[in-house]
Amino acid sequence: MVNETELLQLPDYSIEYTPTQIQIHNLEGLQRAVNAYANRYANVIVTDDTEKSAKDSRAKLNKLSNALDEKRRDIHRDYNKPYDEFADTIKQLRSVLQDTIDPIDDGLKELDGQHREQRKQHVQSLITEMSPNYGVSASDVEIDPKWLNKSTSKKAVTEGIAGVMKQVKQAQDKFESDSHALTKYAEVNKVDATPWIDQLKQGQELDYLFKAIDHQVDLNNQKQKKLEAQAAEAKAHQKIKGDAIVDTDTGEVVSHQFVLKITGTNEQLWALRHYMDQQSIKYEKVGD
């Protein structure tokens, strides 16, 4: 095992290299030739009549340009060769060290994960312990990832949990109060409160829901008046025969009358009434 106080260092070594000088012999002649070729074709006008010769000129110029670039690539490969060999050697040496570094790195990551899980369990225990004092359920408190950081103090975690629990409690109290008010408002307007409570759960504002109920009641009243007018018109051409209502114009049985005794919770009975209103089913209370 390596002594923890041992200083790891590489032995003295040096790298010798000589910067390469790239010199073009007869550069002036090369420049003159390139300028001469460029000038020769500088004023070529492309028309239907000169298209063929223009393409030939372009091909010759491209050939010269490619020849220059090929020479550049040859020099670049030779220039880079000693560096590429040096870089490969360094990569091989680093690979030997990396083969040892990787398992250590994996072990540290695994250990960090274990420590983080231990901190998470501690935070969850703290939440469970504190939740009764704030009147909330531990399941309602979501763990903030920063509470699991090694650098976060226990005091900061405790204060963070307390702050979240206060917010949760305030939100729950507000929902309970708003839900009660919304239920009463729905009952007064004789509508089912369930769908409105669902919207409240989704974060809809109470004032908006009050206005929405008013609007729905207006629509229901308009629909009911229309149905009543239609029923009155139809009733003028109907008569009762036994338990059936018959259209006097066509002789068709348009509906039946039944006496039912229905038992259910308040919510069920409100839902049933709402359904019958939607379906234009006539009903009336019999007895007390």
Score class of each variant (00 low, 15 high):
residue 27 L to M: 12
residue 277 D to R: 10
residue 204 Q to N: 10
residue 235 K to L: 06
residue 61 L to R: 04
residue 46 V to M: 04
residue 182 L to R: 00
residue 247 D to R: 01
residue 14 S to Q: 12
residue 125 S to F: 02
residue 250 T to H: 05
residue 40 R to A: 14
residue 55 K to E: 04
residue 6 E to T: 14
residue 181 A to C: 10
residue 237 H to L: 11
residue 210 F to V: 01
residue 79 Y to V: 03
residue 213 I to C: 01
residue 251 G to F: 04
residue 27 L to H: 09
residue 66 N to K: 09
residue 174 K to M: 09
residue 126 L to Q: 06
residue 179 S to D: 11
residue 98 Q to R: 14
residue 88 D to L: 06
residue 32 R to A: 10
residue 58 R to C: 09
residue 21 Q to K: 15
residue 10 L to E: 13
residue 169 K to W: 01
residue 132 P to Q: 02
residue 151 S to Y: 04
residue 94 R to S: 12
residue 144 D to A: 08
residue 192 D to Q: 09
residue 149 N to S: 14
residue 89 T to W: 04
residue 20 T to G: 05
residue 126 L to V: 08
residue 36 A to V: 08
residue 128 T to I: 12
residue 194 T to H: 11
residue 119 R to N: 01
residue 179 S to W: 02
residue 108 L to T: 04
residue 89 T to C: 05
residue 37 Y to H: 08
residue 210 F to W: 12
residue 52 K to N: 07
residue 71 K to R: 12
residue 284 E to P: 03
residue 71 K to M: 06
residue 87 A to T: 07
residue 107 G to Q: 13
residue 237 H to C: 03
residue 282 K to A: 09
residue 154 K to P: 00
residue 270 W to I: 12
residue 106 D to Q: 14
residue 170 Q to T: 14
residue 83 Y to S: 05
residue 44 V to A: 08
residue 71 K to N: 06
residue 26 N to L: 03
residue 231 A to V: 13
residue 116 R to A: 00
residue 87 A to K: 08
residue 130 M to K: 11
residue 228 E to K: 10
residue 145 P to R: 02
residue 287 G to A: 07
residue 161 I to H: 00
residue 111 L to K: 08
residue 220 N to I: 06
residue 85 E to W: 02
residue 251 G to N: 04
residue 143 I to D: 00
residue 113 G to F: 00
residue 232 A to G: 07
residue 202 Q to W: 03
residue 178 D to E: 13
residue 223 K to C: 04
residue 62 N to I: 15
residue 280 S to Q: 15
residue 208 Y to G: 05
residue 270 W to E: 14
residue 222 Q to G: 11
residue 189 N to Y: 04
residue 48 D to V: 15
residue 30 L to A: 09
residue 12 D to K: 06
residue 225 K to G: 11
residue 266 N to R: 15
residue 100 T to F: 12
residue 131 S to G: 11
residue 91 K to P: 02
residue 171 A to V: 11
residue 207 D to F: 05
residue 48 D to Y: 14
residue 9 Q to Y: 06
residue 96 V to A: 11
residue 280 S to P: 09
residue 133 N to P: 02
residue 268 Q to N: 11
residue 129 E to F: 06
residue 234 A to M: 15
residue 122 H to W: 09
residue 108 L to P: 01
residue 194 T to C: 02
residue 153 S to H: 09
residue 199 Q to F: 01
residue 79 Y to W: 07
residue 17 Y to P: 00
residue 202 Q to V: 03
residue 2 V to W: 08
residue 212 A to I: 02
residue 67 A to D: 10
residue 77 R to T: 15
residue 146 K to D: 14
residue 194 T to E: 14
residue 96 V to S: 08
residue 181 A to L: 14
residue 104 I to E: 14
residue 266 N to A: 13
residue 262 I to L: 11
residue 219 L to M: 15
residue 144 D to K: 09
residue 261 K to Y: 11
residue 92 Q to T: 15
residue 74 D to N: 13
residue 181 A to V: 07
residue 211 K to P: 00
residue 184 K to Q: 12
residue 88 D to F: 06
residue 68 L to G: 06
residue 183 T to E: 08
residue 136 V to I: 05
residue 94 R to H: 10
residue 116 R to Q: 04
residue 241 K to C: 03
residue 29 G to K: 02
residue 60 K to S: 11
residue 19 P to H: 01
residue 262 I to C: 05
residue 125 S to W: 08
